[in-house]
Each structure stands twice: as C-alpha cells, then as structure tokens.
C-alpha cells in the first residue's frame, strides 16, 4: 500500500475513534481527550503530506504541526480548568448532568 494512503487511513481511523469517544462518553474529561485525539489525527495528516508530498523542503507541514501542538496544549489547559471550575460548582463532571449554566 502507498505509505501516504496508509498514513491518511490511520489518521482517519484515529479521528473516528476520537469523535466516537467525544460523542458517547459522559465524563467531560474524556470528551476533552477525544477532542485531543482528533487534533492529533489532523497533525498526523500534516506530517504525512509533508513527508510524501512534492515539496518536503518547505517544512510547512512540520511548522503547522508545531503550532497546532501549542494551540492544543493551551486548549487542554483552559478546558481542564473549566472542568475543574464546573466541578466545584455542580459537584459533577458528567456532561449529561450539567444541564444549566446558572447554578
């Protein structure tokens, strides 16, 4: 199989796994973990296209992945802080029980 196609298929599978987790799990932390998995799948796509694309010397894929990792780190920090604040307020981190914004 073409290595680029293998890369893309692994990435698509990882994205689907993350999406299924984010949609089905009830713990807010695991929803965030599923979103992180989806972001990582996109990063794998960038690396694959950089590695097997026509212009690897441009380094665009790697630079994009570095910035995406930085954004994902910021997103995870703020998201987990939000989950902690919600937990302190509603005493639960179950997304199906957090039904109102004004406690």
């Amino acid at each position: 199989m073409n290595p680029l196609a293998a890369c893309l298929l692994v990435s698509a599978l990882l994205f689907a796994i993350g999406l299924a987790g984010a949609l089905t799990r009830r713990s807010a932390i695991l929803v965030l973990a599923g979103i992180e998995l989806m972001l990582n799948a996109a990063n794998l796509n960038f690396i694959g296209f950089w590695r097997f694309g026509p212009h690897p010397e441009e380094l665009t894929g790697i630079i994009f992945v570095i910035f995406a990792i930085a954004v994902a780190a910021a997103e995870a920090a703020v998201g987990l802080a939000l989950i902690l604040a919600i937990y302190r307020h509603a005493r639960t981190s179950d997304v199906s029980e957090i039904t109102e914004m004004k406690g």
Binding site: C7, I29, L32, A33, E36, N40, N43, I47, G48, W50, R51, G61, I62, V65, I66, I69, A70, A72, A73, A76, A77, L80
Partner: peptide
C-alpha cells in the same frame, strides 16, 4: 516518518504535560 522535531515536541507536550494534566 522523519519529523524528529514534531515527534519530540509531541512527546514533550502530550506525554509529558497533557497526560499529567488529565
């Protein structure tokens, strides 16, 4: 895949920081 810098950054940020945070 040959992306050393991205791989090490991934190891540092995700395995080192985000996993601990979670």
């Amino acid at each position: 895949l040959g992306a050393e810098f991205a791989g090490l950054a991934q190891l540092l940020v995700y395995v080192g920081a985000i996993a601990i945070l979670i």
